Simulated assay, not measured.
Amino acid sequence: MERTVLKQVVLEAIIRLRNERTDRSLYHIFQGKRSATSLQDAHFYELESVFGMLPFKKERFEQVLAELEQDGWIEKQQTLLVTEEGRRHVRSPFLIDDLGGELRGYPVVLWRRISLLLQTVICLEQRISFVPVQQDSATKDWVRNQLSSLTERSAWLRAVYQELEQALMQLSEREAILISYRLSGRKTGLSYPQLSGYLEADTGSLQLEFLIAWRKCIRHLPEAGLLMSYGIDIDQSKMTQSAKKTWEMLKQGYAVPQIAERRHLKKSTMEDHLVEIAMYAAVFPLNQFLSEEEYQDVVRVSDRLQTFSLKRIKQELTHEIDYFQIRVALARKVVNR
């Protein structure tokens, strides 16, 4: 079977799931589903880098799994399992760690802003009409605000060109082509289907290659430069807005029952928020939910069994700990690893 970037990323993700999650779970991670279970899976299994990065249709996802299974690289049982043959086709380091992840969203939002602003300025300079390369309202509003203070367009274009040229010179030829051909000038930048024939790769793989290339490009842009200044205000927090509100109230001294009552939250929702806070907060009041001894018990069992399966861990614990407490303990274990 042809080894594409798309299949490589899917295979790497399945390896990290440790034969403990279903294809449905993986699909939700790729889609970036903001549910407690999907956020938790992405956090526990080191898959935050691919969270929301493969928003393809279910049919395409199932097709990729079928191709991997047909060639003996994976097995679909109750969970997804990579075979020994499949492991032989995995390269190190993993590609998925270069994707960034929509949980942070920074590279994607920065690209939208820069690509639309560049297209807009060029077309205004040429006095030609155009169809915006980015259609989301947030990016369009941001560009409008920037244009009001951008008076020296020619000088701005020269500065952008110089920064991009220096950064692209640090990349491979293929990576530089992906970025430069995706940018828009008088004409719209090439689409992934258009690039597919030119670079001889499927569109899914090209999307992933582009994201990897763009993240590398960002690392070579001057930190105090013009283009990087356009990302200063981008929210890079992983926590959902609702969990953030709960976290703010906790820091203000409200007790958990008070927060649940004031915010009209169910017990299960409140627990999901607390686990999410435990996953992402630098400091977390762990002793409010389980003792240090109970926490260490969960960590020891998880490490010994090499698992994040709540059921398997609970069966081996020496303390009487409920599933919520196990989830909190595992969340802090990942933060501390």
Results as ranks from 00 to 15, higher is better:
E2M: 10
E12N: 03
N19E: 15
D23Q: 14
S25Q: 06
L26W: 07
Y27S: 06
L39G: 05
L39Y: 11
F44A: 09
V50D: 02
F51T: 04
P55C: 06
P55I: 05
R60K: 15
Q63L: 12
L65H: 08
Q70I: 01
T79L: 08
V82A: 15
V82K: 07
T83G: 02
G86I: 00
R91C: 04
S92G: 04
P93G: 01
F94W: 04
I96Y: 06
E102K: 12
L103T: 03
L110V: 02
L110C: 08
I114L: 14
L118C: 02
V121A: 06
L124R: 15
L124F: 12
Q126F: 09
R127P: 00
F130A: 11
D136T: 04
T139Q: 08
R144K: 15
R144M: 05
L150H: 03
T151W: 12
E152P: 00
S154K: 15
L157N: 01
E163K: 13
L164C: 09
A167Y: 06
M169T: 07
S172W: 02
L178E: 07
S180E: 12
K187D: 11
P193F: 07
P193N: 04
S205I: 13
E209S: 11
E209L: 15
A213F: 02
C217D: 03
P222K: 14
E223R: 13
G225H: 09
G231W: 08
D233E: 14
Q236Y: 04
M239N: 02
T240C: 07
Q241M: 11
K244V: 02
K244C: 05
T246V: 14
W247H: 10
W247I: 04
Q252M: 15
V256N: 08
P257Q: 14
R262T: 10
H264Y: 13
L265D: 00
K267P: 04
K267G: 00
K267V: 12
D272K: 07
L274K: 06
V275S: 05
I277R: 07
I277L: 05
Y280H: 13
L290F: 02
E293S: 11
E294W: 03
Q296H: 09
V301M: 09
L305K: 14
I313M: 03
L317H: 03
H319F: 13
V328A: 08
